[in-house]
Write a protein that binds this DNA or RNA. Structure first.
Length: 178
DNA sequence: GTCTAGATCGCCT
DNA sequence: GGCGATCTAGACG
C-alpha cells in the first residue's frame, strides 16, 4: 500500500493526479494516467458514506488502497480509491484517465466510442470495471495503482464537484491544467 | 455549439 | 416509490 493513501481524501485527491492505473485483461494491458479526481468523506452530505456503513458502501469503510465500485443510474459503474484510516468512510472518485497504453483495447471496450475514459462511467466501461472489482486490492496485477508525476507544464486546478445535489459548493474536485 | 429527455435499477426514505 | 458521485442521442439553430 502507498503511504499517502492513508491520509484524508481531500489531501489524497490532488496528489493522485498523474498517477497510473494499470488494468490487465485477457486481451492485453491498459494503462491510464489519472487526470481528474473528487474527494468524498463521511461528514460530507454528498458522500455515500454520510449515513454510515451499508452493504453497498462497505468497502469505503475498509482499508485504504482498495477499490470502492458502485452502480448508479441503472447502468453505470464508478470507481473510488479508498483512503484514510480504516473505518473512516472516505474515498477518491476517479473521474478521468488519459490512456497511455492499450488504446485499441480500450476503444473496443467502449464499443468504438470516444472519448475513451473521461467521465467516471465511461472510465469504468473502458477498463471493464464493475461490481466484481468492489473491494479489490489495488496492489494486485489485474488492477493496479502506480505512482506517477506531473509534467513540467502541468498544474493542479480545483473547483466544485460534478453531478451532486448536496454540498455543491465544496471545492473537492481536482484536475490537471496548464 | 447548447439543451433536453430517456435509459434503467439498486438503494434509501 | 423516488431518485442518483451518468452517458448518449437527438433537436435546435
Amino acid at each position: 500500500m502507498h503511504e499517502i493513501l492513508s491520509k484524508h481524501s481531500t489531501e489524497v485527491a490532488p496528489q493522485l493526479l498523474g498517477w497510473i492505473l494499470e488494468r490487465q485483461l485477457p486481451g492485453g494491458i491498459i494503462r491510464g494516467r489519472i487526470t481528474e479526481t473528487e474527494a468524498y468523506h463521511q461528514d460530507d452530505p454528498a458522500s455515500h458514506s454520510f449515513r454510515g456503513q451499508t452493504e453497498r458502501n462497505r468497502s469505503m469503510f475498509g482499508a485504504a488502497g482498495h477499490a470502492y465500485v458502485y452502480f448508479t443510474y441503472g447502468m453505470h459503474f464508478c470507481m473510488n480509491i479508498v483512503t484514510g484510516p480504516a473505518g473512516s468512510g472516505e474515498g477518491v472518485l476517479i473521474r478521468a484517465l488519459e490512456i497511455i497504453e492499450g488504446e485499441e483495447l480500450t476503444l473496443a471496450n467502449r464499443g468504438g466510442k470516444l472519448p475513451l475514459a473521461t467521465g467516471p462511467g465511461r472510465l469504468c466501461q473502458a477498463l471493464k470495471i464493475d461490481r466484481s472489482m468492489d473491494g479489490h486490492d489495488l496492489t494486485q496485477v489485474t488492477l493496479k495503482l502506480l505512482p506517477g508525476k506531473l509534467q513540467d507544464h502541468e498544474i493542479i486546478r480545483n473547483g466544485p464537484r460534478i453531478g451532486i445535489q448536496q454540498a455543491k459548493e465544496m471545492p473537492y474536485r481536482f484536475w490537471l491544467g496548464k
